[in-house]
Design a binder for these strands. Structure first.
Length: 259
DNA sequence: CTCGACTCCTGTTAGC
DNA sequence: TGCTAACAGGAGTCGA
């Protein structure tokens, strides 16, 4: 599913549309427009504006314009198609079929190019001028000191805290499971029970996971990933992985080396 | 305020 | 072969 790494790939794929001017907007699905937005408004406001830049905070992608800023969320199955080319060809848990019926939002530019959001399950959405203050610091760049504070101020399970986008933005189910697997820490421990040395270890682990999996090609390329199945064995020590629900998400972790 | 339970979406797949 | 039910997870809401 799209986590920080995939959204960053999408953002880079969207770079070529910077400088282009919107000619036409397709917003066939009002459900996909968030924050009280309606198709009538986007088709009134967006034609004529020029794209001035791209951005990303966590899993939120931004398209800056000389008018309102567009906030694009891809949910679990959203893909980005720029000028007819999909930014990612293999999306974990998503359908990679190219069915135009799943096009939920599209910008057509005056030079003929386009930017399309294709999302089978409609878990993503589009917003104008999204409230970015509701997001924590990006997981790829958060420094140790605020990270410490984020964990120290909650008794929620560690994994739940790491997936709370208002505290730290960008981590989804796969990146969190992989980071905790690498750091050797249980996802179920209260966030504020993690010792200082473990916090530092986890902070390093998150950054290293982002870098390594980014190089490999996405959040589904982790060492733990092949074992994230019922009865899967820990790639590190061969112990049968535990499959529990933490923070409302299916969690795979090793009871032997993740304490 | 915090936190967990619940809800939404629907294509894919396991199993009968 | 054809059907059903379980499953996936990002994000918002609601109540304790």
């Amino acid at each position: 599913m799209p986590e920080l790494l995939e959204i960053e790939t999408y953002r880079q794929a969207a770079e070529p549309v910077v400088g282009r001017r919107v000619d036409r907007v397709d917003a066939p699905d009002d459900w996909y427009l968030k924050g009280g937005l309606e198709a009538a408004e986007v088709t009134r406001v967006l034609p004529g504006v020029a794209i001035t830049g791209t951005g990303r905070i966590g899993k939120l992608m931004l398209l800056e314009t000389d008018g309102p800023t567009l906030g694009l969320r891809f949910g679990m199955t959203g893909r980005l198609i720029v000028n007819g080319d999909a930014a990612l060809s293999d999306l974990e848990y998503g359908s990679n079929r190219d069915n135009p019926a799943w096009d939920r939002f599209a910008l057509w530019f005056t030079d003929g190019g386009s930017l399309v959001m294709r999302d089978p399950r409609r878990l993503g959405g589009v917003e104008l001028d999204p409230d970015t203050t509701r997001l924590g610091p990006d997981a790829a760049s958060v420094t140790l000191k605020p990270f410490r504070e984020i964990l120290a101020t909650s008794s929620a399970p560690l994994k739940a805290r790491l997936m709370d986008q208002a505290r730290i933005a960008g981590l989804g189910n796969l990146l969190v499971d992989e980071s905790l697997f690498r750091a050797g820490i249980s996802p179920e421990r209260p966030a504020n029970s993690i010792r200082p040395d473990e916090v530092a270890q986890l902070h390093r682990s998150i950054r290293q996971t982002i870098t390594t999996l980014g190089r490999r090609g996405g959040s589904h390329t982790g060492d733990l990933q092949p074992a994230r199945v019922r009865g899967g064995l820990c790639p590190k020590d061969g112990e049968e992985l535990r499959r529990t629900e933490v923070g409302g998400r299916t969690t795979y972790w090793c009871p032997h080396h993740q304490a």
